[in-house]
Simulated assay, not measured.
Amino acid sequence: MKRYIDNAAGWIGIVNITVLLIFLIAPIVVMIGMSFDGREYMGAFPPTQLSTRWYQSFFSDAYYLRGLSTSLLLAVIATVVSTTAGVSAALALDRYTGPGKQALESLFISPLVVPAVVIGFALLLFFAMIGISDGFTRLVGGHIIITFPYTVRTTLAGLVGIRKTLVEAAMSLGATERQAFWDVTFPLARTGIVAGAVFAFAFSMDDVAVSLFLTSPDSYTLPVAMVSMMRTNFDLTIAAAAVVLMIFTFALILILDWTIGLDRLIGKGVFRS
């Protein structure tokens, strides 16, 4: 009897996982398929005609292209700044043993739990109060704030288990604190640092809620451009834009794999005592 119950539980688990995978993948498959729809109207799926017309429309539309270039530049700047600041903050938190450590860590990762619309509106008021009206500057500030918690959290996870005696041993052998970091701490915490940078880039490329509050007519991201076009001129160019946005996110991982190798870059950067 117990064996039958275990088998039934196993099959239920398999069915649940299968349904979840279908639920996750099916919308992406539909989106990709509809982006190649050659019909003049938005019809049922699957498309009866295939065409690249919507991609041609996307790459010939200056509005979308400007949003894409802004998103890429913004994601690179936000990733570099938030990763640098996040690693520094995580190292400081890891070494700090005094009172208020948990409160400080909670403060650093608080943008993860505060609703994005609240952050966006608060930043809009703050930038208006200090006189910053340039849209791109506001976007940079907003994206650094929303990506910073990812770099802090993943770096802290990478630092867990790294014995302090390893750094002390390196310094006792003549290494400076900077050399001990690059030769001992950084290689062991590399997984968390790189993962945080990838999360920061992807989240910056994908953000809508915060960016909606901080854009200007001249500076807007691709997701904001897609939302704007959905309200004014809804067609399947938006599906093509969504696929392009997804491809740029995946391309980051592929570039890292081809140029450096994910196994080398991430797989060896974990240490547990």
Rank of each mutant, 00 (worst) to 15 (best):
P99G: 13
M230R: 15
T191C: 04
E177C: 07
V15A: 15
A197D: 00
W11L: 10
W11F: 07
I253W: 07
F148V: 06
M229T: 14
I145W: 05
N7A: 13
G13F: 08
I119D: 11
T83M: 03
D257K: 02
G43K: 13
D257E: 07
D6M: 14
M42N: 11
R272I: 04
S211A: 11
S133K: 14
A239I: 04
S51G: 11
L68I: 05
A251M: 09
V208W: 04
P217L: 10
A26Q: 13
F126P: 04
P99E: 10
I17A: 11
F186N: 08
V81Q: 09
R39L: 15
A180D: 07
T154W: 09
A116H: 12
S69L: 15
S273R: 10
D235P: 10
L254V: 14
D207A: 08
I162V: 12
M229P: 07
D235E: 13
L107Q: 03
L65C: 10
V244S: 13
A169S: 14
S60E: 09
T70L: 00
T52E: 07
G10L: 10
G38K: 04
M34K: 15
Y96S: 08
T137C: 09
V208N: 03
D6C: 05
L93A: 04
G261Y: 06
A78D: 05
V19H: 03
V118P: 03
V160H: 04
V118Y: 08
T83R: 00
G192M: 02
W258M: 06
W54I: 02
G120I: 03
R39C: 09
T48H: 12
R190M: 09
T70N: 02
D183Y: 14
V198W: 02
V208M: 13
I146W: 02
V81A: 09
A180Y: 04
L125Q: 14
K164P: 12
L24I: 11
S71K: 01
F58N: 05
P99C: 12
V224W: 00
A90M: 05
G67K: 00
E105V: 10
W182C: 08
A85R: 03
A116D: 12
F59K: 03
D207F: 02
Y4V: 11
S110K: 02
I130M: 14
A180R: 08
L124M: 14
D257L: 00
P187D: 07
M31Q: 06
G13R: 14
I17S: 05
L222E: 01
D206S: 14
D207K: 02
D61R: 03
R39M: 15
F250D: 04
F58V: 12
L91W: 08
D218T: 15
F136W: 12
G269T: 05
D94S: 10
R95P: 05
F248M: 14
Y64C: 00
I25P: 01
G267M: 08
R3Q: 11
S211L: 03
T185A: 06
W11Q: 05
L214T: 01
M229S: 11
P47R: 02
F213P: 00
D37A: 08
D207N: 15
L123S: 01
L65H: 08
S82Y: 10
Y150N: 07
V227N: 09
A122L: 09
F234W: 11
S35W: 09
G158I: 00
V152D: 01
R66I: 01
L93D: 01
A78E: 04
V30P: 05
M230N: 12
R272D: 06
